[in-house]
């Protein structure tokens, strides 16, 4: 009887194998058709494509050697960039935590709050930082405030979603024990939820700070402060050697940020 069952399973499995292969071919075919359509239909002047390597290398040549003058203002702009990322990350925490609390299934007060929380997270995550920046520049004018708000509005979704998942994954048993002592809702959170999500919280915030440093380097391109403002200015004036210096400065900044985050991660967690 056991043999028969396994033989049956064998047959079924074979059929799936064939179906799987068919699906594979179909996927390949569809992919090729889509690529063909994209290549044929896209609005590209093909001679430019063949010329692109030349153009790129000539731009590279114009950038060399990097122009170290103006390094002072570049460093200042970098510091401003870091301020934007740091302040925005700090401020985000105050908004993202309550949102993650209402967006986690096991802590949300009621269904309306759950959906409100999820709506906030989804809309925050779906709009890119630079689009948020565009909006805030239109509202508050060019400057660092628009940048801080843009980074914040994007980070709320990121931190909130991951924190919500961390809250949903906690061990239920301490919660039950705290409820059994007659603790109020807030005390249960303070004792049974907070300690459990602490490590995740630090990891998520550090990760997002690292991402935010990268993101805040481009805010200036739409006028929202930071190094991007200088970069845009240098490009507009065709000051390519200065552009090269700024690019190198950005790489250094990002690498420093990565080094700091890896140290922090090891220290805190």
């Amino acid at each position: 009887m056991v043999d028969q069952a396994s033989a049956l399973a064998d047959r079924v499995w074979q059929r799936y194998e064939r179906k799987e292969r068919l699906i594979r071919y179909a996927v390949l075919l569809v992919t090729m058709m889509v690529v063909y359509w994209a290549v044929r239909d896209i609005d590209i002047f093909w001679p430019w494509v063949w010329d692109a390597p030349n153009q790129i290398s000539s731009l590279g040549a114009r950038m060399w050697p990097p122009d170290p003058r103006g390094l002072g203002s570049i460093v200042n702009a970098l510091i401003e960039t870091v301020h934007i990322a740091t302040l925005a990350t700090m401020l985000t925490i105050f908004i993202a935590l309550p949102v993650s609390y209402i967006a986690a299934q096991n802590t949300t007060p009621n269904r309306a709050c759950l959906w409100l929380g999820r709506f906030i997270l989804v809309s925050s995550r779906s709009v890119n930082t630079i689009i948020w920046a565009l909006l805030f520049v239109a509202i508050f004018g060019p400057g660092v405030l628009a940048g801080i708000l843009a980074i914040m509005f994007r980070s709320i979704g990121f931190i909130g979603k991951l924190m919500g998942e961390a809250i949903e994954e906690i061990d239920r048993r301490p919660v039950e024990a705290m409820e059994a002592t007659g603790a109020s809702k807030l005390k249960v959170i303070a004792y049974a939820v907070v300690p459990q999500v602490m490590p995740a919280f630090f990891a998520i915030v550090i990760l997002r700070w690292d991402i935010n440093i990268r993101e805040s380097t481009v805010l200036g391109l739409v006028g929202a402060g930071g190094i991007g403002v200088i970069l845009q200015g240098a490009i507009d004036t065709f000051a390519w050697p200065t552009v090269a210096t700024i690019l190198i400065a950005i790489i250094v900044l990002v690498l420093i940020g990565e080094a700091i985050t890896s140290v922090l991660r090891r220290k805190v967690i």
Binding site: I44, A52, E215, T217, V218, L231
Partner: peptide, 25 residues
Amino acid sequence: IIVSRSFHPVIVAILFVAAVGFGPL
């Protein structure tokens, strides 16, 4: 890999726009 990860796509885009002109390329 480090260099291409360090730059936000928007910065790379600006450079390519400067090199090969506006448009999807």
